[in-house]
Design a protein around this nucleic acid. Sequence first.
DNA 1: CGTGGGCTTGATAGTCCTCAAGTCGGGTGG
DNA 2: CCACCCGACTTGAGGACTATCAAGCCCACG
Lengths: 233, 233
Amino acid sequence: MQDILRSLDETERALLEAASIRTVTLAPNRPLATEDEVGIELFRIEYGWAYRFRDCGKGCRQILDFILPGEIVGLEATLLGRMEHSVRSLTQLQATALDPRLTGQAFSNAPQLGLRFARYIAAEKSRVDQFLTVLGCGDAIERIAFLMVSLYRRQAQRDKIGPLNCPFPLRRQHLADALGLTGAHINRTLNRLREDGLVMIEDHRLVIRDLPRLAAIADSISGGPAGSPHVDC
Amino acid sequence: MQDILRSLDETERALLEAASIRTVTLAPNRPLATEDEVGIELFRIEYGWAYRFRDCGKGCRQILDFILPGEIVGLEATLLGRMEHSVRSLTQLQATALDPRLTGQAFSNAPQLGLRFARYIAAEKSRVDQFLTVLGCGDAIERIAFLMVSLYRRQAQRDKIGPLNCPFPLRRQHLADALGLTGAHINRTLNRLREDGLVMIEDHRLVIRDLPRLAAIADSISGGPAGSPHVDC
DNA sequence: CGTGGGCTTGATAGTCCTCAAGTCGGGTGG
DNA sequence: CCACCCGACTTGAGGACTATCAAGCCCACG
């Protein structure tokens, strides 16, 4: 998933400029948008990570996806008229707030931008489909391997990152909430992955020791390369 | 999720007419589209049910969503250029095949239709988000209750169906593949739901005995009314 | 130096899976 | 019309995986 607002033409750029309202900066773990919100806003993440999630009562939540720099938050809310999930910052974060009317204007006046938005949503949906497959069919090791490979590849697409080594700001509890497991079991499974020489988390970075084996686990379960498709806009 | 091709204006209707290629009829459990397919087609379901799924090796598959009459198949494939999942008929089924170029044309020449497509994908995505939440957080009873209520409400939105009674063509194995459980356990859990006087499946129809309690279980876990949002086009 | 949050680890219990056998019903061929 | 057959469903016993709960550790922070 690349920066969806790169290489725009003049009309599109003008629309975007006009829609930019303000810049927001957030400490880690702060709300950016809340489920059922009515005053919907659109955000473009400038730097830092965020995540989408749903609360399901009982002190339990499901993380639906992680959002990386260059990506957009709230696009579906502007289409459906209502937030269907919440968003929080994972790390320190900076985002540009955009006028939500941008979405409608894009479809009317800048078809290429509208198409780009549609592709973006389709790609997000495809990623959730993959995620669902892994939760439905995979055990703890496969789930963790999938998420790691997926986030590694998404970063590799965008940034020059060191080989087999990339930022990984997720805490145990984020992994647990994303993968439908408990923090305790996440921990035990991470130990096994490290002991088996596959991968380890060190100082909030992912250190991959055996990418082929790790990717084999991740891709076997998701039915395709974890983390694809990406949107090349 | 209603029929997304209702109440179009003249331009849109003309586009649609021109794009209609042929009608296909399928027996139950036949492939309509396959993962990684390149010759992508767009289908509008005229009658019957279908389902989207991914294979994850090991003889295991994950059903991602069920598709009801009036809905569209393959929209994201035309946006992303590639099928990311397979589709099969669940019941006997009739569908109209549409020229996949319709998608691009809609965004260029019929903005309202493009917007409708985007909304449709956003709603599908929102439903997958809900599904993911239920798989991540819910136990067997909650998962089954959620799927039942979700499919009941989707049908109630479209059709005049008898109160607390609607078609339900899913076999045990479909429930299992959708909910990340085994057929055996599905069966045991269905027994419990029937014994508790909540709901039963009879002659391929859903018979709801206590909607408030069933819906309470379903909605508690998904963090909102199961099956919404619908797209009112 | 005290405090708190995140991490780690162990023991126990519960949910769900696996495998296998048996039942039922509808369709087919004799 | 009946016997057969196959797939879907049902049920049971044992085992695997993961949750729950609780305690101790470690480090960053005030």
